[in-house]
Amino acid sequence: MELKTLLLEKRSVILEKWFNLILESYPPDASGFLRSQRNQFTNPVGNTILKGTEGLFDKLLGEMDSDSEEAVSLFLDNIIRIKAIQDFTPSQAISFIFDLKKVIREELKNENSGVESRISGELLKLESRIDELALESFDIYMKCREKIYDLRAKEFQDKTFRLLQMANLISDPELRSEEDHGSVLKGKDNNLKPEK
């Protein structure tokens, strides 16, 4: 429990450093805006990352009290969903998870050796958990990318569905009133000559 107490004490410093590290992956001209503009609607990227890191950190600390693993997927998802459609490679998109390990290590390095040896077991456990989150991040990232391709395909289908239907090229018996549509097409005079 000593590690948790320490991390709680250093919560705001760790979160700030972690947040800043993530924003450094953006061009300097953009990171200033992402960092400073705190309106969740006019700066949704910065604010989602901010809330996401806070949520992830608190959940991880919460887990340390109990045996159960808390649902962190939502926070991971919110951040990765953004990075998956921005100019990042897959490794860059999920590297922010490892930044947390780095920040925690840096913050704990000034503790005296007694503390360090007492928390090493807990720290190892926490870092292993962060590694698990990295694995989960791979899954989320892939899910987002697959969604993009799915959207492309679906949009194409939606655009052509009515046209196929009109051309009588769809013959799914489940399709409601297909026969009616057929009769509309075949049974009516399609004389469209403009009146003169």
Binding site: R162, D180, V184, L185, N190, E195
Partner: peptide
């Protein structure tokens, strides 16, 4: 003709839903 057909699809759906037959004019 296809433009007209596409509207006729909707007319058929409207008739199913409301029971009302609509006959719009073209050109």
């Amino acid at each position: 003709h296809t433009f007209k057909n596409s509207l006729e699809f909707f007319l058929s759906d409207i008739e199913d839903i409301t029971g009302i037959k609509i006959e719009p004019s073209f050109n």
